[in-house]
């Protein structure tokens, strides 16, 4: 087994003359919580979509969970979970039905789905909401459910694209507890966020500016290197150089 969960070398994505992701290179270790930071439009989502097999890279090399991104994309998909920026559970299905659906398409057996559903509902304290339509759940609950559903098939790596956007501080903290639990069980967590307090929770952080990875290291290292008080200051020092505006 490759001890690296994700290995990226000079990965690039161009849309016409616009280079969204410009030859990024980094590795993510197994079981690590890897923060993927950057201003809006820096190319985070595009990079993440490439790693999930939703978008073809223009050039560069990458392996995810030990499989080649170009040739073995469908094998990668069996081993990753993904939670997109857009809420992506079915609002007209109940909590239980959503879990069953996503578990089912990853090939889980009925017994496994049943056990998973039980675990998940208990873990999220949502037993009484099992048969509620997802539509009528509050946003924070939906995001937590969405995260749990992306882990339904016990993936090696989970990609989270701004999972806590618009969520209140208490729920955000609960959400990070869930992330820690997953990491503790050995799942690699690849997460983008705009909250700098969340960046402090990560094992390592990369900061993207204008499609490039400008800084990479543990929060402590970065703070020392940029002689900053906290991650917010590090981010500001880097992101101010950006040429690209908001999306």
């Amino acid at each position: 087994m490759n001890p690296k969960a994700i290995s990226v070398e000079a990965l690039t994505k161009r849309f016409g003359s616009f280079t969204a992701v410009d030859a990024i290179t980094f590795d993510v270790a197994q079981g690590e919580i890897f923060g993927f930071l950057g201003a809006n439009g820096a190319g985070k989502t595009t990079a993440m979509r490439m790693l999930c097999g939703l978008s073809f890279p223009t050039s560069g090399k990458a392996t995810v969970a030990g499989f080649d991104l170009y040739k073995q994309a469908e094998k990668i998909k069996q081993r990753i979970g993904y939670m997109s920026q857009k809420f992506s559970l079915y609002e007209d299905l109940t909590v239980r039905e959503n879990i069953r659906f996503y578990g089912g398409i990853y090939g889980l057996s009925d017994a496994a789905i049943k056990a998973k559903t039980q675990d998940m509902l208990t873990g999220l304290h949502m037993q009484s909401e099992a048969n509620t339509l997802v539509r009528s759940l509050p946003l924070g609950w939906r995001q937590k459910l969405s995260f749990s559903v992306s882990l339904v098939h016990d993936p090696n790596i989970v990609f989270l694209d701004e999972p806590t956007g618009g969520v209140d501080p208490i729920t955000r903290r609960e959400f990070w507890m869930l992330i820690y639990e997953a990491a503790h069980r050995g799942t690699t967590v690849f997460v983008t966020t705009h909250y700098m307090d969340e960046a402090e929770y990560c094992n390592r952080v990369s900061i993207m500016v204008d499609g490039r990875v400008d800084a990479l290291g543990s929060p402590q290292e970065l703070k020392t290197r940029f002689s900053a008080e906290d991650m917010g200051e590090v981010f500001l020092k880097l992101a101010r150089k950006a040429q690209r505006g908001d999306e």
């Binding site: 998909k77 069996q78 997109s84």
Partner: peptide
């Protein structure tokens, strides 16, 4: 439109 297709597309379906 609602974005669920992305979620389907990251599965090995």
């Amino acid at each position: 439109e609602i974005g669920t297709i992305e979620q389907i597309n990251v599965t090995p379906i």
